[in-house]
Design a binder for these strands. Structure first.
Length: 292
DNA sequence: ACTCGTCAAGCATCG
DNA sequence: CGATGCTTGACGAGT
């Protein structure tokens, strides 16, 4: 491969390996209070600039915020008035992010089911996505920001679920600013995920590890097209040796990265690859030290 | 300072 | 039919 590694930017998630700085502190629901929310969110937000600085210094182009950056923000017990105290804290972090060139993402959890047949599940999912949306807005509202989401469970009928997902998406057009859809290893392969993404007019995040477990016929040209003017974002991880199938390893196996470069082909440039490896920044450094 | 049971949420799968 | 696992493990009571 004579591709230049500088043409592929890498992404770090949540914190550094030593956890000295983290954007994912939380607490127990039982101790939910305005004071506790503000205190924890302040810690998470105060750690964001040093993490962004680390990314800038080490040529890391993307950072995934912790889901708990504002703990319980979409929970019914969270008073919306609490945001008044949080917004100035975001303001400070925003100043350090803007101009850094670091792309932000956030990855809401497995409970988000926009395709669920249960309306209360869809409503709760929208509340959580609105929270993630607000976080990205408060941190600069950069259109390159990404809310990473899976289509979700199949609910017994993939096509009916895809149709419900698309309908809910179109009824909530604000979702389109940041949302992107990632293929998963159980329910929705890359081909079906791309189908939903195209119906919504949003980017598709190609996760090559999930694709290896749950494969389908797709090429990068069509995936890239789903992103329009945004930089395509991808995920890579490697199977943990001796671990359960699907479990992430500490490092990225160079052979897996070479597979990704082969999949990208002539388009192995102007893309961002989130490195889902437990050794975090050390796994990124190991990839950066290779001559691809 | 340390261990270790438990933690908001949905869903499918495994035993 | 209860336990497990998911993009990531963190909290906190108990010792």
């Amino acid at each position: 491969m004579e591709k230049k590694a500088t043409q592929v930017r890498f992404g770090l998630f949540c914190s550094l390996r030593d956890n000295a700085h983290s954007t994912n502190r939380t607490f127990r629901l039982a101790s939910l209070s305005r004071e506790r929310v503000v205190q924890t969110a302040r810690q998470n937000l105060e750690d964001l600039p040093p993490l962004i600085d680390y990314c800038v210094r080490h040529d890391i182009g993307m950072f995934r915020l912790g889901n708990a950056i504002v703990p319980f923000a979409s929970h019914i017990g969270f008073d919306p008035a609490w945001w008044e105290e949080l917004e100035p804290l975001f303001e400070t972090a925003r100043h350090r992010i803007e101009g850094s060139g670091v792309r932000l993402s956030i990855h809401p959890g497995q409970f988000i089911q926009l395709g669920s047949p249960r309306s209360e599940v869809v409503e709760a999912s929208l509340r959580e996505l609105a929270y993630a949306h607000r976080v990205l807005q408060l941190l600069g509202d950069n259109p390159q920001g990404v809310i990473t989401l899976h289509v979700g469970a199949a609910h017994g009928d993939h096509h009916a679920t895809m149709a419900r997902f698309i309908q809910t998406f179109h009824a909530n057009d604000w979702l389109g600013r940041f949302l992107a859809l990632e293929n998963d290893e159980f329910h929705f392969c890359a081909g079906q995920t791309l189908e939903v993404a195209n119906a919504c007019g949003i980017g598709m995040i190609f996760d090559i590890f999930h694709h290896s477990i749950n494969p389908s016929e797709v090429c990068f040209k069509t995936i890239k097209a789903s992103w329009g003017v945004k930089r395509p974002k991808l995920h890579i991880s490697s199977q943990a040796p001796g671990g359960k199938r699907g479990m992430h390893a500490d490092w990225i196996d160079p052979e897996d990265f070479e597979s990704l470069l082969r999949f990208l082909g002539d388009d192995a440039r102007n893309v961002d690859v989130m490195i889902e490896a437990k050794a975090k920044e050390d796994a990124i450094a190991a990839l950066q030290s290779q001559k691809w």
